[in-house]
Design a binder for these strands. Structure first.
Lengths: 247, 247
DNA sequence: TTGCTCTATATGTCCGACATAGTTATTATT
DNA sequence: AATAATAACTATGTCGGACATATAGAGCAA
């Protein structure tokens, strides 16, 4: 018996649950069957199912069985759940799009709030990230490009945290993978990187000067750069409809 | 042995964890001790601890013990966790304030997004809530006042859901208790209720006409009503500093 | 049809045992 | 005496089997 079988089994059952087609039944096998299927004891199975229950994925009724809850009940605002959806989920693209929409909608607002509440430590954290971005901008394309991405993510994280509000701070933990994925998609050239850095710097300066409106506008400009770059990178005809209701 | 001891034990351990003073150790008793303390078997204790682990509250290392994770790791965006913090947490007021700040910041934005994405069904859901508010507005103060509150909450929930975005939809599930608490605080008179209803109606109409900016402005006016009412209801000197960093 | 009991099923709980991973104490070596 | 290898200890992780309990369905009776 290896160590932490429970985690491995949880992952397997999560795959089993999230990758199911919608036309299948929403009942999952009994504990005993799962126990045999994965070659572990019932206790281990129960530990995994307990985790999924805590995250709102499944629902267990004594005597009846274990069923998958409707997706609206899932605790999407849990980074593990988000990870499972994007790895195994059949509607992973939809989720990714909605996360992106969400981020585009809030990021300017977050910047303006950060401008109101950022502490000195928050400012230096943002500055540290920006410095890292600048230092790695000149050598883009080499292996250090990855370093640039990490500093980019760190920059955005620092701004969310600078709101000094738990909700925003927690949200960035959820959004981080989405931010990371978006940055990876858009590989910029050296000159574009310089522009990106300078636009990011405008956000920092507005926050430092405690000018919410300016921070808001600067964040909008950062996003515009991202959007235009996305449009350029994506296949020409793949402009996502994005509107679920244009009736 | 009663049914669902696990839930009860989870609640007890949650109280034990959340109500601890910060100067105490961050280690919690061994499974065997908890088992004796609550008069249940080790399995039941483990089920409870597994739930708390899944929500990021505690961390367990084989051979070492179970420790409480730093608060920044807690999955605050989980309605159960939020409930525990507000029930047992020593910093419940702080959380409530931050939830309120968050809601004040996003609600106009949510209204504008709803104006872009609301479906016909969403509109009728909002309208249904508003009708309920109007019907129960005249008899405020009686037992139907509670009915009015419920329709008020339903109104806000419907707007979040009308964004057709999972993140906003999940967030309203987290915010609902906060919204409810705020509404309970501010018991309005009959004429003020009429004003409240009419301002809410403006939001609906803007969404129906698909005018994001108007919806945004209308939502701001709804919040202004709430704010002014809060200021009137609260004890005069209790204007929360709210700024964590005015150095 | 309605309502009851009885039965089958699957989860919830209990117990006892051992495995495994950290931590601490002990011993041996230089 | 300082340090490294080893042993003992602690607490969680896993196992197996047993029984309790809640739910659903079948069968039966009024």
């Amino acid at each position: 018996m290896e160590s932490n079988n429970s985690l491995r089994v949880t992952e397997h059952i999560a795959e089993l649950v999230f990758s199911r087609m919608s036309n299948e039944t929403n009942l999952i096998p009994r504990e005993v069957d799962l126990s045999r299927q994965f070659g572990v004891s019932r206790s281990t199975i129960r530990a995994a199912l307990q985790t999924l229950t805590a995250k709102g994925i499944i629902e267990r009724v004594s005597g009846s069985g274990t069923r998958i809850r409707p997706m609206t009940c899932w605790n999407i605002l849990d980074h593990e759940v988000i990870g499972w959806v994007s790895k195994y989920g059949t509607a992973a693209d939809l989720l990714e799009q909605q996360l992106l929409d969400f981020r585009m909608a809030i990021e300017p607002l977050v910047a303006s709030i950060a401008a109101q509440h950022a502490s000195i430590q928050d400012l230096s954290a943002i500055e540290h990230a920006l410095t890292g971005m600048a230092n790695t901008a000149q050598v883009a394309g080499t292996w250090q490009g990855k370093g640039h991405q990490e500093y980019d993510i760190l920059f955005h994280q620092s701004i969310y945290r600078a709101t000094n509000n738990v909700v925003w701070s927690q949200l960035v933990a959820i959004l981080a993978p989405s931010i990371s994925a978006l940055i990876e998609k858009s590989h910029l050239g050296a000159t574009e990187l310089q522009l990106s850095v300078s636009r990011h710097r405008e956000v920092l300066e507005a926050i430092r000067l405690r000018q919410p409106d300016k921070a808001y506008a600067a964040a909008v400009r950062v996003l515009e750069l991202t959007k235009s770059d996305l449009k350029r990178t994506d296949s020409p005809m793949k402009n996502a409809p994005s509107g679920p209701s244009h009736s």
